[in-house]
Amino acid sequence: MKPVLFVTNHAPPFRVGAFQTLHERENVHFALIGGGVRHGGGGTQTALPFPTLHPPQRAVARLAASGRYRAVIAGLSGRTALPAAYAGARAGRVPFVLWATIWAHPRTPAHALSYLPLRHIYRNADAIATYGPHVSAYVRTKLPKGPVFEAPQAVDTAFWEAPAEPDRRGDFQLLFAGRPAPEKGFEILQQAADVGTLVVAHDRSPEQLRNLYAGSDVLVVPSLPTRDFLEPWGLVVNEAFHQGVPVIATDAVGAAAGGLVRHEQTGLVVPAGDVRALRAAIHRLKDDAALRRTLGENAKHEVAAYTYDAWAQGMSRALAAC
């Protein structure tokens, strides 16, 4: 059976397990086009457990149309890779699956130029696989002709749920894991966190980060919507949930919009940019240990379904449909 061509930018460490699982199911060759990475954990590992190619973006159309592949999957990475993959699949008369990852189109002049071509691909892809229901809802506003499937965001379950050595630095510990960039809402968190000990985890090893999750009472994900950014998911939520740590997230976080962080069930959800609401949520969890424990237990149970296999199954369903 011919392989599937999957066009994306990188195979960062947090994607390797998912990509390997999909390859084992479908015989996938990954065309890694490179380029800049906005989110943490980017870059491509040198040794990967699946076939890879490293074409320039200008060569993607020819590769997709080559006849060597039974289907083409492409994400939103790169300036020209997506339309090239789509055009190549059409020229080669093979099915095209869009891997959709955004739930709002960026509002910058450069992105405005890409809106109509991307809407055409949404409408005419043979199938679409998304990050979750929030992305699926957005995609359906583009009136796609093909079916839409969800491939849930996942991390390495075995690693993140393994016993850790708690790194605890206060009686009530708040954790911020990620880049303290403006769109991540770090300044809002600094204003809101007037109790407990706020720990910032940036450029930590996975083992160090797992220890910080284990030692923290709450993970806070205070992301903000900007003209060119809306948090697609937030894998730190999955990581914390595997350690049984509840999350306070804003409604601009994909993991909240997508249903993993559910208000008063697996965490607390507050309006993005609302310092008072975020402060109130922090105080609520500080003062209610029983609620923290219940949320953490629910979170660990809920995230168990978010696995590499579940992601690969979602992608496989999209391939099977076309």
Rank of each mutant, 00 (worst) to 15 (best):
R140W: 09
R140S: 14
R140N: 14
T141A: 11
T141Y: 09
T141E: 15
T141K: 14
T141F: 13
K142I: 02
K142Y: 15
K142P: 10
L143C: 14
P144K: 01
P144N: 09
P144T: 07
K145D: 11
G146M: 03
P147C: 05
P147R: 00
V148A: 00
V148Y: 08
V148S: 04
V148W: 06
V148P: 10
V148F: 13
F149D: 09
F149C: 11
F149K: 09
E150S: 11
E150P: 01
A151L: 04
A151C: 02
A151I: 01
P152A: 09
Q153K: 01
Q153H: 08
Q153M: 15
A154V: 00
A154E: 00
A154Y: 01
A154F: 05
V155D: 08
V155N: 01
V155G: 04
V155P: 04
D156L: 05
D156P: 04
T157E: 08
T157S: 06
T157G: 00
T157H: 13
A158N: 10
A158F: 05
A158G: 01
A158S: 11
A158W: 00
F159R: 08
F159K: 01
F159Y: 11
F159V: 03
W160Y: 06
W160M: 00
W160C: 08
E161W: 01
A162K: 00
A162C: 02
A162P: 03
A162S: 12
A162D: 02
A162G: 00
P163Q: 02
P163L: 03
A164M: 13
A164C: 07
A164K: 07
A164F: 09
A164E: 12
A164V: 11
E165R: 12
E165L: 08
E165T: 12
P166D: 06
P166A: 04
P166C: 06
R168Q: 05
R168T: 04
R168W: 02
R169L: 07
R169W: 12
G170K: 08
G170F: 04
G170E: 10
G170N: 07
D171N: 14
D171H: 12
D171W: 07
F172V: 10
F172I: 05
Q173T: 09
Q173P: 03
Q173M: 09
Q173F: 04
L174W: 10
L175N: 05
L175F: 03
F176H: 00
F176T: 06
F176A: 06
F176Y: 12
A177V: 07
A177R: 06
A177P: 05
G178K: 03
G178A: 03
R179K: 15
P180V: 06
P180F: 12
P180Y: 13
P180T: 13
A181Y: 15
A181H: 14
A181Q: 13
P182Y: 13
P182H: 09
E183C: 11
E183R: 15
E183I: 08
E183W: 15
G185N: 15
G185R: 11
G185F: 13
G185Y: 13
G185Q: 12
G185W: 07
F186D: 14
F186Y: 15
F186I: 14
F186C: 13
